[in-house]
Each structure stands twice: as C-alpha cells, then as structure tokens.
Design a protein around this nucleic acid. Structure first.
Lengths: 221, 221
DNA sequence: GCTCCTTTGTTGGAAATCCAACATACTTTC
DNA sequence: GAAAGTATGTTGGATTTCCAACAAAGGAGC
C-alpha cells in the first residue's frame, strides 16, 4: 500500500496530515484495499453502507438504476477521488445506489464510523480528518448542484451546452476532455444517447464546437 | 434570541450540545438574526458565501435561476432546518444560487469560518459541531440524490410518482402534506406546471391517489 | 355578498424527445 | 488482415412535453 502514500497525501481527505501519521491513521481507519475488474460492481444498492472509497487506480462510477433499466450516473471518481463519502457520513444503513468499476481498479476502503470515533492511538488528527471530510462532502454537494443545473435545462442542446461550458470553466480552457463516452454522458445528463448524438452533430455543424471522441473544443461566437 | 434556544437545541446542528454552552457558542459563531418578509431574497446569486442559515420562523427556498427565467427549486427549509450549509463549507467565494423567504421569516445566520476555526472561549464543542455539520451536509446530499432520482425519470407522471412515493415513505404514511404549491412542485421536479396538473388529474381519475391542495393520499392498487 | 387576485385545471397546436432499427466507424482479438 | 464486437452517428414515426391562452375555483379584503 505504501506505493500509494503520495497519492493519498495529495487527496483532499488527507490534506494537512503529517506523512508520518498516515500509516497508523490508515490502520486506525480500518483501511483495506480491494481490486475490482472492469465492469464489476464495487457495491450494489442494498449493500451495507458506512465505508468511504478512495480510487487508487482506475475509476468508479456511482449510478442509480430503476425498474426499467434506466441508468443515471451520479458521480464519476478518477484516481485520487473519493466516492461513497456522503452515504457513509449520513448514517444510513444500506446504500441507495450502486458503484461500478469503469476500468480495472484498485480501491482503498475506509470505515466512516472509525473516522468519527476518537480512538486511542495516533489519532490526534481525527479532527483534521473530519474537517477535511466536511469540505469534501460539501464540494460533492456543489457537484450535484451542477448536475441538477444541467438536468433542469429544458432541451438536450441546452443540457449539453450547460455541461460543456461548466467543463470548460473547470478546465480553465475552451479545450478539454470529459470522462464519459457518449452513452455515459447521456446517462449523466438524463437524455437519449441517439438524440444527444444528433444534437452534438448540429452543434458541430453550427461551428459552436469541435469534438473528437471525448475531447471537446468550444468556439466563442 | 433566547426564545429560540429550545428550537436550536433540537436541530441536528446542535445535537449533543450542552444547553449551557449554547449561548457562548452562538456568540462565538458570530450569530445574528435577520427578519425577511415573504417573497424577499435572503441572499442572491453572486453574494458572498460563508454563512449557515437556520430557519427559526417561516420557510426558505433555495433556487437556481437561468437566463430564460426558469426557476429550479433546490431545497425547501422549514422551521428548524438549515440552508446554505454546503455552500458555506465548500470554501467558495460567491453563492451560485439564490434564497427566498416563502413566508415572513426569522433566520439565524452563523459564520462557517468561525465554526471551522478553534477559538479560545467555550468552544470545546467545536469538534462536536463539525461532526454534526458533516452529518447534516451528508444528509443534504442524500436529499439532492433523491431530487436527481425524481428528475431523471422520463415522464412527468413517473417524476410525480417517484416524488410522492418518497414523501409517503418519509412520512411513514400513505397520507401526507407536501411543502409545495403546484408551481413550486413543478419547479422542484423540473416540469411544466400545466402538464403536471393534467397528470395529477389523470392519476386521481385512475384511482391512484386523492389530493386536496397540498395534501395527498396514495392508494395501493 | 362582492370584487380583485392568486392558484389550479383544461385545451390544442408546435416543438422536442423517445425508441427502435440500421449504418458507419473504431477496437480488439486472433 | 479478417472478423467480431463495441461505440457512435443517422433516420422516421409515435409519444410526450412545452407553451400560451383561457376557464374555473378558492381566498383576502372591503
């Protein structure tokens, strides 16, 4: 696990933590790693809640699925990102959503309960950890706000543009790569893939953007 | 402000706090009350972020508004509820949304920065406060998850049913009252008011529910 | 009771989405 | 390089939403 110490220290969860404290802290948090092959579930709706996931390799998507088989992608977690924190910290018993490995992934799982309980050993930093977690969960909240903003646009074109403008803003550039393929983007925005694909074609033809795969360039007109 | 101490102590933010500590704590958090008449803004998009709101009287809605004048209701906060916590804790500079008083309201505003900074006086409970806040923000996250679940349904009828079933579940009864009028419910679900009204009529005619104003009864068939 | 004003329900045509089916491009595997 | 599998783009018709305008119902104030 030591090979991932630098990665962990760079995550917002362990921000401000003394590197020397990391190892005992991980032990105290009941850390354990799991390896999940591409496409397999990390957890399923109904599973016991209470753990916080950190992506060390690969990527994870958290999704809602309904009867009809419709997928709605809630969050996409890349290397260094957290997932499941909000469910862990909200004191619920079972997960209301599922998580899948989008690629072969190596994940670190931490116990939320142990994070919130002060224990004996090297855990003077528990309080810092809780503050970090608060910030992480609050920022996840902002992300969901953004998603809601995209989804509440009326037309597919408006949803796309709202999303792409936000990505450009986040990248600080009119050129950026999104973490979704077409189907996943449609599932994230809550629209039809084929209709979305058609809208992307129109936007390109209108000179508003260029795209190649998941790489986009927005033109200001 | 003392008249509201019991209310404050019953909120999840001050859960586990010794009543004797409340007053100095409020002082330490830079608490101040404001009175907002019905319909007036509590804060507007672009205002400085950083405060946590507690509803002591009345109710507050947090909304997103776009160019076209479309409203999207993000959260509805009743007496005893918090609002704006996620924006305050996420370390952003300006509010990305607006808040309005739905009725004449009396609000308590707390400084988030002061909550996260350990100060000298009676603030041994800061850590408890941060933990409480983490739970509150995490639960708000679940609420947004639910809203996303409603919004990601394909038809207006499905959105309505998903919302109403959740309300029944939350009320623990097939009979419940929602905090929205028709226009507000439409704005919350992201649908047309008139189309939604028509769907409600169909659902009633089909014997799936009864409704009078904001009071609903779901029938199991 | 009466009027004014707000909320809710109803309607019909225009616009957009949904869906399934198929065409094309790109990847992977052997 | 061929073949199989996956991802993306394209099309047309059925369904649904959107929008504006109006009708009906309910409430507040006088």
């Amino acid at each position: 696990m030591k090979e991932y110490f630098d990665l962990l220290l760079s995550t917002p969860l362990f921000s401000g933590i003394d590197p020397q404290d990391l190892y005992p802290m991980l032990h105290c948090l009941g850390a354990n790693t799991v390896t999940i092959p591409k496409g397999d579930p990390v957890f399923l709706e109904g599973d016991a809640a209470g753990f916080i996931g950190v992506v060390m390799e690969g990527s994870v998507q958290v999704v809602q699925e309904d009867f009809y088989g419709n997928r709605n992608i809630l969050t996409h977690a890349e290397k260094g990102d957290l997932f499941g924190e909000a469910f862990a910290c909200a004191n619920i018993e079972t997960m209301p959503v599922s998580g899948y490995a989008v690629r072969d992934s190596k994940l670190l799982l931490l116990s939320c309960q142990k994070m919130l309980t002060v224990c004996s050993s090297a855990c003077l930093f528990h309080n810092q950890l809780v503050k970090n977690m608060l910030k992480v969960v609050a920022q996840k909240n902002l992300e969901m706000n953004n998603k809601i903003r995209f989804m509440s646009q009326k037309t597919t074109k408006e949803k796309l543009m709202a999303y792409l403008l936000e990505q450009a803003k986040a990248a600080g550039s009119s050129e950026f790569t999104i973490p979704f393929d077409r189907q996943a983007l449609a599932d994230y925005l809550g629209v039809e893939r084929s209709a979305m694909s058609a809208e992307l074609g129109k936007l390109k033809k209108a000179g508003i953007l260029d795209l190649k795969g998941s790489h986009f360039v927005l033109h200001r007109t």
